[in-house]
C-alpha cells in the first residue's frame, strides 16, 4: 500500500484540454472517489495514474516515486474496468492467475493465491467457469479478484458498477468497501453516481470540465459545497436566481442574508432546509410524492420558480394548497466569488 500524489498533472488531446493542471494527495489506505459528469476528465485522470494515458505535464507520484512516464505493466497499480475486460478465451482461474504467471510464481503459490482471491470476492468454486457463464456482477468480481491477487499499491476502479442494476451495485459497493477496509489498499474510484460516491468514499473529488471543483469528505461536500457546480451536482438543491443588495439576497420572495458584493447571484437551499412557518415566502404545491420516510413537495412560486421541499409526513399538505416557507440554512453563489453560507437556525 502507498500514498498517491498528483503534482500539476494535465492532459491535452489535439490541443483540447481534457484535464487542466491539477494536484491531489491521497493518503495510504484511503478510498477516494472521483465524481463528475461525463466529460469532466475523471476517467482520463484515472487512466493517467494507471499509465494508459501519458500526462501532458506534471508528476504522478506513487510512494514518492514519479511514474508519469512508466508503462502500465511496470506500475504498481491495478485497474478494474467498467466493461470488466475479462479475457473470454480463459476461464476464471486463468484470468486471475495470468498476472501471477507473468511474475513467474510457482504453480502451488499461484493456485493458493487465486483461490484466496476468489474466496475474498465470494466466487469460491467458480474457478473453472468461462466468463460467458457468469452474470455481470460475477464477472466484475472476477475482475476485482484479478486486481487484488497482485496486491497492487494502488487500486483504480473506473465506473466498475455502471453496467450493473441498482440492487447489485449497492451490494457490490458494500463488498468493495469491506474488502478495501480489510486490505487497507489505497483506492481511487471513478463514478458519475453521487450516491455511490457518498456511500463509498473517505473523500470525494468533484470534477467538472477537466478541473477539480472541490475535495472533501462526503459530509463536507454535501453540507458545504464550495462552488455553484458542486451545489447543483451533489444532492438536490434549489438554485434560485436573485440579486444581492446591502448584504441581503432577494430571490423569488426570499429575503435572506448574503455578505457579498452587490449584484446578481444564486440562492441555494436544500429541500430539507426549509421550515414551514406562519410568515415567509408563499408557494403553491403542484405535486406531492411519498418517498417513504418523508414527503417531497414540488411547489412553484408566483414568479414561476420551481421549488422542491421535503416535508415531515405529519404535515398536512395537498396538491394545489399553499405553503409558507423560510430557510433554516442557505448559501449564496456567484461565479468567481467566495460563497456565502448562513449559520443554520434551529
Amino acid at each position: 500500500m502507498a500514498s498517491l500524489s498528483l503534482a500539476g498533472v494535465s492532459k491535452e488531446f489535439n490541443k483540447m484540454t481534457a484535464v487542466s493542471p491539477l494536484s491531489l494527495d491521497i493518503a495510504d489506505g484511503e478510498l477516494v472517489c472521483l465524481l463528475g459528469p461525463s466529460g469532466s476528465g475523471k476517467s482520463t485522470l484515472l487512466r493517467m495514474i494507471g499509465g494508459f494515458e501519458r500526462p501532458s505535464s506534471g508528476q504522478v507520484l506513487i510512494a514518492g516515486q514519479d511514474v508519469a512516464h512508466t508503462r502500465p505493466d511496470k506500475r504498481p497499480t491495478a485497474m478494474v474496468f467498467q466493461s470488466h475486460a475479462l479475457w473470454t478465451h480463459m476461464n476464471v482461474f486463468d484470468n486471475v492467475a495470468f498476472g501471477l504467471k507473468l511474475r513467474k510464481m510457482s504453480k502451488a503459490a499461484i493456485e493458493t493465491k487465486v483461490m484466496e482471491a476468489l474466496e475474498l470476492v465470494g466466487l469460491g468454486g467458480y474457478h473453472k467457469r468461462m466468463p460467458r457463464q457468469l452474470s455481470g456482477g460475477q464477472q466484475q468480481r472476477v475482475a476485482i479478484a484479478r486486481c487484488l491477487v497482485l496486491e497492487p499499491k494502488i487500486l483504480l476502479m473506473d465506473e466498475p458498477f455502471a453496467s450493473l442494476d441498482q440492487h447489485l451495485r449497492e451490494r457490490l459497493r458494500e463488498e468493495v468497501r469491506q474488502i478495501q477496509r480489510k486490505l487497507k489498499i489505497t483506492t481511487l474510484f471513478v463514478t458519475h453516481a453521487q450516491d455511490e460516491a457518498l456511500a463509498l468514499a473517505d473523500r470525494i473529488v468533484v470534477m467538472s470540465m477537466g478541473a477539480i471543483e472541490q475535495v472533501g469528505t462526503p459530509d463536507e461536500i454535501y453540507a458545504n459545497p464550495e462552488t455553484q457546480f458542486v451545489a447543483n451536482f451533489i444532492g438536490t438543491m434549489n438554485m434560485i436566481p436573485g440579486t444581492v443588495s446591502g448584504g441581503r439576497i432577494r430571490a423569488s420572495g426570499f429575503d435572506l442574508g448574503a455578505e457579498m458584493a452587490d449584484g446578481p447571484a444564486v440562492l441555494a437551499i436544500r429541500p430539507e432546509d426549509f421550515a414551514i412557518t406562519e410568515t415567509g415566502t408563499e408557494v403553491t404545491v403542484k405535486r406531492v410524492v411519498n418517498l417513504g420516510p418523508f414527503l417531497l413537495a414540488e411547489a412553484e412560486h408566483a414568479d414561476g420558480t420551481a421549488i422542491t421541499v421535503h416535508l415531515d409526513k405529519t404535515h398536512p399538505v395537498r396538491e394545489g394548497g399553499a405553503l409558507t416557507l423560510t430557510a433554516k440554512r442557505h448559501a449564496v453563489y456567484r461565479d468567481g466569488d467566495k460563497p456565502y453560507r448562513s449559520q443554520p437556525t434551529a
Partner: peptide, 23 residues
Amino acid sequence: VSKNMEEAAMDVGASPLRVFWHI
C-alpha cells in the same frame, strides 16, 4: 478485440508482446 482487454493485460504486468501473444 476490446482495447480494454489489452489494457487489462498490460495492467497485470504483460509487456506489449505478451499482450499480443496471450490476448
